[in-house]
């Protein structure tokens, strides 16, 4: 099957046809009747869809590459070590051997109410959010007026920090390219969808600029081994020959429905060197604008310390590079 054949099969099956990667998230959605497809189109065997290769000025990763392939690939490790690390520490080894890049980006939120047949919440088109007054320790701290679930993708924040682009193919051969940042929808923008794909559109590949950034990733989790992140941070910066930051992104994961840019921290870093003082100030403002809930205030502190840790990692790389 080719991309065009997959797109045609999806278009023919409308409504009720759905694309499938490894199906890890889809199983769960099927069990809880969140999706009830008549037809699933597996993209796993599309030739080239798992390829990872340098081309021109970018590192291109096919959307069906598995998390383990991404973690182990020498070009990824060289150009985007933060991505290799995020992919290599998401889920468990056996899941990483199957889970795909596109499935990771498009997976639905892990909110327990969302995943339960008994709770017709906002995200399923229902009238209320059960987490607002219920269990929300792991929920959002930004954009917390309506649905407060967080994006489950660990790769999302890293790809945003790396200024990656995603190529999307649509029905009838239409294709478009957009920044990964624009793929995600804030809960307040759209309470029922997480990614901005139109009906029948598919993620084909992700491209990361080679003239890249110094980048680092840090994940805070409750258990050391195999656990979802409480907070994760991805940073990508460009520096000049004196070590002064000329551009940079600081992106938080597991705190909102989108990879959340810490703009205040980014502003503070610009035109500075990563001194102790800059790192401390940058970490202090990383949670600016947070509106945590009754039971997840701890995440605000975790954001600050995780940003500090990540910036310190970046400094160690910068020191090594100069």
């Amino acid at each position: 099957m080719s991309w065009d054949e997959a797109l045609a099969a999806l278009a023919d099956g409308e409504p009720g046809a759905i694309a499938k990667g490894a199906g890890i998230d889809l199983w769960d959605l099927l069990k809880e009747e969140i999706v009830k497809p008549d037809l699933m189109v597996s993209l796993l065997n599309i030739p080239g869809a798992k390829d990872i290769a340098k081309s021109d000025n970018t590192l291109v990763i096919g959307s069906m590459a598995t998390l383990q392939m991404i973690a182990d690939h020498t070009d990824v490790i060289q150009v985007a070590p933060s991505l290799a690390q995020a992919a290599g520490s998401a889920a468990s080894p056996a899941i990483r051997n199957a889970a795909t890049l596109a499935g990771n980006l498009c997976q639905r939120p892990r909110c327990g109410y969302f995943r339960s047949l008994l709770h017709p919440c906002l995200r399923k088109g229902g009238g209320r959010c059960f987490a607002q007054d219920g269990h929300h320790q792991n929920h959002a701290i930004f954009d917390t007026e309506g649905c407060i679930a967080t994006s489950a993708s660990s790769l999302g924040p890293v790809l945003v920090a790396l200024e990656a682009m995603v190529s999307v193919r649509g029905p009838g051969g239409a294709s478009r390219t957009l920044p990964v940042e624009k793929l995600f929808l804030m809960a307040s923008q759209n309470p029922t969808r997480e990614v901005d794909l139109r009906t029948g559109e598919l993620l084909e590949r992700v491209s990361i600029p080679l003239a890249g950034t110094i980048n680092a990733y840090h994940k805070v989790r409750a258990r050391d081994g195999f656990d979802w992140p409480m907070v994760e941070v991805a940073v990508g910066v460009r520096i000049d020959s004196r070590g002064i930051i000329t551009s940079g992104r600081v992106v938080l994961g597991a705190v909102a429905m989108v990879p959340w840019r810490a703009f205040e921290t980014e502003k503070l870093l610009l035109n500075t060197k990563l001194t102790n003082d800059v790192i401390r100030k940058g970490a202090d403002v990383a949670a600016a604008g947070a509106r945590p809930l009754r039971d997840n205030r701890h995440k605000v502190d975790i954001v600050r310390s995780a940003v500090r840790e990540t910036l310190e990692k970046v400094r160690r790389i910068v020191d090594g590079a100069l």
Partner: peptide, 13 residues
């Protein structure tokens, strides 16, 4: 040759 969770793999795959 790769370990995977067979509870998450549809037979067709």
């Amino acid at each position: 040759g790769l370990p995977i969770n067979s509870c998450l793999v549809p037979f067709g795959q």
